[in-house]
Design a protein around this nucleic acid. Sequence first.
DNA 1: GTGAAAGCGCTAACAA
DNA 2: TTGTTAGCGCTTTCAC
Lengths: 334, 334
Amino acid sequence: MVTLKQLAKELNVSISTVSKALNNSEEIGEETVKRVKELAELYNYKPNKVALSLKQNKTKTIGVIIPDILNHFLAKVLFGVEREATKYGYNIITCISNESLEQEKESLRLLANGSVDGFILCLAEETQVKNEIEHFKKTISQGLPIVMFDRVAHDVLCDKVIVDDFDATYNATKSLLLEKRKNIVFISTLDGISVGKLRERGYRKAILETNTFEPLVLKIKKKDDQQKKIMSFFKKNTTIDGVIAADSSSGIIALNTGVKLGLKVPKNMSVIAYASKSDSFHTIPKLTTIRQHAKEIGANAAQLLINRLQNKSIEIDVKTKIVKTTLIKSKSTL
Amino acid sequence: MVTLKQLAKELNVSISTVSKALNNSEEIGEETVKRVKELAELYNYKPNKVALSLKQNKTKTIGVIIPDILNHFLAKVLFGVEREATKYGYNIITCISNESLEQEKESLRLLANGSVDGFILCLAEETQVKNEIEHFKKTISQGLPIVMFDRVAHDVLCDKVIVDDFDATYNATKSLLLEKRKNIVFISTLDGISVGKLRERGYRKAILETNTFEPLVLKIKKKDDQQKKIMSFFKKNTTIDGVIAADSSSGIIALNTGVKLGLKVPKNMSVIAYASKSDSFHTIPKLTTIRQHAKEIGANAAQLLINRLQNKSIEIDVKTKIVKTTLIKSKSTL
DNA sequence: GTGAAAGCGCTAACAA
DNA sequence: TTGTTAGCGCTTTCAC
C-alpha cells in the first residue's frame, strides 16, 4: 500500500501538504492539489484505515455476536445489520458464540481491545439459563455500547430490539380458536431461551381463556429426532386439530407429518409457525407463518448503535424497540 | 480503555518499562514486573489492537465476502471459516455482495485499505456471468492474498477450495440409474453460476451414457413460484421416476409435490438433492442428500489463507483443495 | 501556500 | 535494570 510519505517524497513536498491536498484543504495551491491527486490516483492511494482508527480513536467497526449462524432468523438479522451498517460506513466483525456463555464472554473480551466501537448481540442460551450479565455490564462500563436483540437481558441497561413474542403467539392461537379448533398443541425446540418461554406463555394464555381444553405442549430437545418425536406424539394424540410451532422446523415437520397420517390440511388440522417466507414453501399446502421481520430487527439494532456512537451528547436513556411480527395467512389455515 | 501511558504515570516508571514488564521481558526486575502486572490487572488493561496493527502492519483480520448469507451452504462455510480463524487468533469481517459484481468490487476496495490481511470469498453470480476478474487480480497484486471457494475464477492465480460437483452429480445420477429409473429429471435454481453448470453436466453425462432416454432439465428462476413450477412440470411429465436437485429447496419441493400427486417415494420416485442434514428432515420420507461439508470447506479456506499469511517464505505455487461430497442415502431412494 | 511537529498506543533498538 | 527515542500512517495546529 502506498503511503502519504511515499507520495510526498516523489512529489518533493511535505507529508502534510499531501494530506491536505487530498482532503481538499483550502490552504493548498490549485496546481499542487492537481499534482498530488494525479499521483495518488496513479498509485491507487487509500488512507490507511488502521492509522485513521488510531488517530481518531474509533474504528467504524461493529462487533456482532450471535449464538448460531445456521439459524435462519439470526442469519437474516445479521444480514440486516450488515446492510444498515454498510450504509453508514461501518464494518461488521462477526463472532459466533455457539450458545455458549464462555465463548460469548471470550468474544466480548477479545473485541473490547479497541477492535470495535460497540456491540450488537443476541444472548447465548447458556447465558440466559445461567442468567449471567456481568460481562455485559463490564463492557458497557468500559465505554463500549451494546445493543441486544431478540434474546435480551432485561437487567442490563442498554438499547434493545425485541419481538412481540407473547402477543404474536397469543393472537395466532386465538386465530386457531376462531376456526373452532378444539385441541391445539404448542410445539417448540426453544425451551431454554426467553423467546421460547414468551411464546409458550402467549399460547397458554389464549388456551386458558377459552376454558374448554387444557394447554398441550410438546417440547423437543436438540438431540431428539424431531420427526420421530412429532410422529409418535401425533399417533398418541389423534384429536389434534391445530398446531402452533415456535420454530420453523417444528412447523414444517408437523404439517408434513399430519399429511402423512392422512389428515387434510387445513380441513382437519391448521398449522401456524414462526418461520420465514422460504420456509413456507417447504410444505404443501404452504405454511401460514408468523414473520419476525429479521432484517428490520437487524437494521434497527444497527441504527440504535450507530446513533449512540455518533451522538456526542451523552444520552443516558436507553431505548427498547419492538418490531411487531406479522401473521401471514397461507394455505395451512382456514 | 487504559493505556500504557496511564499505567506508567501511576507507577512512576517509563512506558517502555511497563510494556516490557507486561511482555515478560527478562530485562525488567521481578519487583517491578509484579507491581506493573498488578496494576494492569486492576485496571483491566488490554493492549490496543489498532496500535498493534499499525505497528506490526498486520491486522489479524480476514475479510470474508459471500454472495448471500441466507443461503444455508454459504452460512455454514462462514461458520467454518469463523471457527478456524478464531483458533488462530484471527477475526472475521463479513461483507455480503448480494450476488452483485458492483458490491463485490466495493467490498474488496473498502477492505483493501489496511482493514484486513487477506480475503476469503465466493464469487457473486453476476461476477461469474460477466466473467470479470480484474478486481481480484488487482487486490492480489496489492499484496492481499485471496482464497476462493465453491464458485471460483479459474483464471485468477490464488488458492481455491472447491467441491467435486461434476463427479458427485454424475455419481448420484448413476445411482438412480442403478435403481432402474427410466426418466430422471434434473431440477436447478442455480443456472447462472459455475457449480450449477457443473452439476448439470454431471447429470447429463450420466444420462447420455445410458443411451436410453434424453436428459430432462427443469430450470427455475429466482422470481418463479417454485412450487407451481414443479407441480405443473410433474403434471406434464407423468413418467418422472427420479429427481436430481441441484439445491435443497428444489429437492424438498419436488419430493413433497410427488407425494402430493400420489406418488410413493421411493417406490415410484427417487429424489436426491444437494442439501444439508437439517433439510433432509423437511420431507417424509427423509431426503437422500449430497452433503458438501460446508464447514470443512470454510475451515480449509481459512487454513490456506492463514498459512499464506504466516509463511514468510514467498510461496508462489497456489493450491486447489477439493473437498469431496458424500452421498448420504436416506429414505427417498431405494 | 507550504512545512514542521506533535500525538494517537504500542514495540524495540539503543542509551544510560 | 530502566529510560529515551524513533517510527508505524495519519491529521491538525502552528510557524514560516
